[in-house]
Amino acid sequence: MSVVALKKTAPPAKQATAEVLPLPVTARSGQWLRKSVSGFGAAVLPPLVVLFVLLAIWQIAFSGPNAGLPTPTKVWAESSELILDPFFVYGSQDIGLGWRVLTSLERVAYGFGLAAVAGVLMGALIGQSALMMRGFDPIFQVLRTVPPLAWLPISLAAFMDSRPSAIFVIFITAIWPIIINTAAGVRAIPQDYRNVAAVLRLNQIEFFWKIMVPSAAPYIFSGLRIGVGLSWLAIVAAEMLTGGVGIGFFIWDAWNSSRLTDIIVALIYIGVTGFVLDRLVGWIGSVVSRGTAT
């Protein structure tokens, strides 16, 4: 791909040098263009080079006749349709990976949304009281290390239905860092702000919205950011039991029908989506907590 792009841009550059010379204004805009192009290149080129090298190593490593994994070229040959058309619909169970990602995102939205609300409230409650902190913190520290898959049988037994259990698995995976970070943020509220609230006689609800949330916002959002990453990690575990059309179930299904190249494409979809989710929450956090950062 990149080789083709280079060949295309080369001939017009020759023409440009002949015409642009006498005008200082265009020279300046040319400079600006060159700067932004070189800035873009500095940001995009290194990861592209690394990617290319990794793909090459992969290609060489699994080219042998007894290789267990498909090579990149084989992935492209067998599963290029999944990459090129994320939004095809051939039947209720045979749809593009874009649709599957969206289905999974909806599930994550429920689980993570519940975890965000419950986690912030719990964290606020625990952060407010040293006694509660002492009581709950060790338990949270133990529970947060339980892997998502381990919650599966418990939630199935509790809910006796796959849909709520899947959402519960996402919820329980994402909630711990949200609680722990919110509690830390609430504990870090300066005494000065508490004094102001006391003099104004703010009640609990006013204190929560006007002092606690804005003051702890940077902590809360770092918790939410870790939480959204974890909840996306839990999607495969969650969808192994729900079935349906999610990206997590797609992997499970592809494994059962030994379509390894499809799994590799799905992994890329999951990775890119997780990256976008992480950046999205980070961006919302930086917008919301602007001002408190100083």
């Binding site: 000065d192 702000y193 004094n195 102001v196 003051s215 907590s289 001002g291 408190t292």
Partner: peptide, 10 residues
């Protein structure tokens, strides 16, 4: 009136 102003920065 607090020593370090105690204004809410947000």
């Amino acid at each position: 009136v607090f020593q370090n102003h105690s204004l809410l920065p947000w």
